[in-house]
Design a protein around this nucleic acid. Structure first.
Lengths: 208, 208
DNA sequence: GAACCTAACTTAACGCTGTTAAGTAACGGA
DNA sequence: TCCGTTACTTAACAGCGTTAAGTTAGGTTC
């Protein structure tokens, strides 16, 4: 079974070569520069060779996205070490915004671009270390278990989705509209801080 | 001075004809279907004729955006009639979300797509009836004047931008990620309600 | 009225895109 | 040795935004 394994390995190698080339183009020149022909140029193959390894451009980008999601989730490792759930939530929010501002191109593709379905993913969903949404949910689950959330907040998913939407709103508005002059944009840090503060204040149970 | 005026009028007519065709294509088949060639087909001109009336495709879309922004701002007319600023804020948030869900294509172009500068606009900025951001700001200005906002909230722009980001987050996540199966999406109405409630709770001054 | 000029187009083309069809080598298995 | 699969290549198609060059109609000027 030597040749077969070697062939499989070679196939995997050129696959990752394509992905690496795409990732480099994407990071350095933006999503619009990622064309099949430019990827092919980089790896010194013909453009059509890519279609032997990926169904089409969309499938290629989707697979790029998967690894980006993994990097995104690992971005929260530092925050994960914080014991207090509310403080962990604060740190997670800050990490989230930081990731978006540091990798705006990735953020756009991951969270600001509608994609048709894309169900088949190599990511282990539900695992807080690879699935950022599961990570957020686990924080709120602990907060709820410890009685730190308001009484009427019983649906973990709704709360998670609103928290997510809050920080996502700050990041995505910044990415999409920071050049628009008709808004007197205040410093990003101020917006981030107030958003996190408002969100936490809105879900935290008040002491009497 | 007859002929000259007639010529100017004709020029304006074909201009709006182009815009109307683009708008129709855009609304019915999405932004990707708006191509110079398809617009030209609709109005029975050659594609290049459009370039005599618009610098390029981007300028055409920018002008479409302007009228969309006007429609967007007028969407808040009903909410504007509410006297209490916090209730007006609630109604405005709900109108905002409703607009986004009813016109996802427009919303995407307006608020989810980075555009290079685009400063020249026919919109009267600062006028709450045409500028939705100014409208939001005017609500919060009244709230602040009436002592309804927390003491530490002194910067009207920061508060406005966070409120905006909150509802924008709910809408844009819905538009971009509603097909993603790795999130157990809860009903849009629940997310909207909780977001508005959390935001208002986070900025409203508490009675003692 | 004739010449001229310019505004408003058209046709043809360029260079780019994603993608497919058809052809060609190389190589493992029967 | 033959055969079929695998992994490609070259050529091409249809579409895109955009530009260059040519055409026609209409107002202006002598």
């Amino acid at each position: 079974m030597g040749p077969r394994e070697r062939r499989d390995r070679e196939r995997e190698e050129i696959r990752t070569k394509i992905l690496d080339a795409a990732r480099e183009l994407f990071a350095s020149e933006g999503v619009d520069s990622v064309t099949m022909r430019r990827i092919a140029d980089r790896i010194e193959y013909s453009p059509t060779a890519i279609y032997f390894h990926f169904k089409d451009k969309e499938a290629l980008l989707a697979e790029l996205c998967d690894s980006d999601f993994r990097a995104f989730a690992q971005n929260f490792a530092a925050a994960a070490a914080i014991a207090d759930p509310m403080d962990r939530l604060r740190a997670t929010g800050r990490s989230y915004v930081e990731f978006g501002l540091t990798h705006p191109s990735h953020y756009r593709v991951m969270f600001m671009t509608p994609k048709p379905a894309h169900e088949d993913s190599a990511l282990s969903r539900g695992n807080p270390e690879e699935d950022a949404y599961a990570f957020l949910k686990s924080i709120l689950a602990q907060a709820m278990a410890e009685g730190r959330l308001r009484e009427h907040l019983t649906d973990l998913d709704v709360v998670s989705q609103v928290i997510w939407a809050g920080v996502h709103g700050v990041v995505s508005l910044e990415i999409a509209k920071c050049n628009d002059a008709w808004v007197d944009w205040k410093p990003m840090a101020d917006r981030t801080n107030l958003m996190i503060e408002v969100l936490i204040d809105g879900i935290e149970r008040k002491k009497e």
